[in-house]
Computed example of a mutant assay.
Amino acid sequence: MKRNALLIFVLSIAALSGWGQTLRFVSILPSTTASGSYTPDGGLALANKYYFRSSLSSIPLANIFYFYTISGTRTLVNGSNSLSIGFFKPGTDEEILAGNGSGLTAKDVLGGAYLTGTATTTNDDYVDIRVYPGQIAPALTYTRSFTVSLYRGLPGTPGTFIRNRTLTVRATVASQVQISIGPSGQGYQPNISSHNVDLGEVSAGASRDFSVYLLANRGYKLTMTVASGGRLHSGTTSDLIPYTLKLNGNSLTPGTGVVIDQTSTAAVYKKEYIFTVVVPAGADVEAGTYTDTISFSISAL
C-alpha cells in the first residue's frame, strides 16, 4: 500500500507542473506574408494586424509561460537598396529581439502565458511591424523573410524550444516625385510651390538667382514654361523688358515645356537647379513694376 500511495503522489506532482501538456506554435495570421505600402512621411501601412497563435493541448493545470523571439537582419531589400525595419510589442517601443531567452529580458521578447484556473487553450499575441519613417528609397518592392521562434519558459535563461515559423515582410515604396522652389542653398522644402524673385531697380541691369529643388525616388521629367518668351510686363504700360535665363551658369532659352532634366531610372534623387534671371542694362521703358511668371512641373516616368 505504501508503494501505491507513493506512485500516485509522484504522478500528481507531474500533472500539476504542467509539463504533461503540449504547447504548440499553430500559425502566423492572417498570413505568413505581411505586405503593405510605405511612404517616407508615414512609415509602413499594413492592411492587416499580424499575430502569432499558440495552443495548449488541454486546460492549464499550472501556469505555463512562453515567449517569441524573431531572428533575421532588420532590413528589407531589393538589390542594393534597403529599408530598415523593426518588430515591436503593440503600442510600445520595446523591440522583439532574436535568441533563445538567454541574456534577454521581458522587454526583449513577446511573452505570454496560460494561467491555471482559466479555460483558455489558444492565445493570439500581436506584433507591430514597422518600417521606420523618413527613409528615402527607390520606388520598388522590398522583402525579407524572418524566423519566428516559440519557447516555453521565461526570458533570462534558455527556454524550451517549441517550433520555428517563417514570416515574410514585403513593403512597396510609394512613388515620390516632388519639387519646391526658393532661394539658392535653401534645400528642398515640402509644400513650397512659389517664390518671388525681386530684381530691384533694373535701369542699369540686374540679375538674381533662385533654385528649384527636386526630390524623387523613381524616374522623372522636369519641365519649365515661360509663356512670355522671356519678357517682363506691366499692367500700366505696353512696354516690355526682355530678360534671359541661365541654368547652373549655362544659357537657357525660355519657352513652353522646356525639358530641364529627365531620367527613367528608379533611384533616389536629391537635386538643386540654380537659375539666374538676367536683365540687361539700357531698357527704355516707362517707370513701374514689371513681372513675369516662370512655371515648373514634374511628372513620373
Rank of each mutant, 00 (worst) to 15 (best):
T32A: 09
I28K: 10
T263A: 04
S57Y: 04
S84A: 11
T73W: 02
R53N: 08
G187F: 07
A216P: 03
E272W: 00
L76Q: 04
F65I: 00
F52I: 09
D239R: 03
T223D: 05
T291A: 15
G156Y: 02
T172P: 00
T256A: 13
Y68C: 06
Y126D: 10
Y273C: 00
L115D: 14
I59A: 14
L199T: 05
F275H: 01
S175H: 08
M1R: 13
Q262C: 01
L115C: 06
L83R: 05
F25A: 07
A266L: 06
D125K: 10
P190S: 07
Y220G: 01
V226D: 15
F161W: 14
N81I: 03
A15P: 00
T157F: 11
G156C: 08
L6M: 14
T143M: 09
T253R: 10
S234Q: 02
G205C: 06
F25K: 09
P155S: 08
N48Y: 14
L56S: 11
E201S: 06
R152C: 08
N123W: 00
T265L: 14
S193R: 08
V259T: 15
G229A: 09
L76D: 07
P242L: 03
K271E: 10
V285C: 10
I8V: 15
I241Y: 05
L44C: 04
D125G: 04
D108H: 09
Y68T: 07
A47C: 00
G200E: 07
A300T: 15
S228I: 03
G205Y: 07
G255I: 06
N4C: 08
Y51Q: 10
V277W: 01
S184E: 05
D41K: 10
Y50T: 08
V285A: 12
P138G: 08
V202D: 04
V109S: 02
I179E: 04
Q189Y: 02
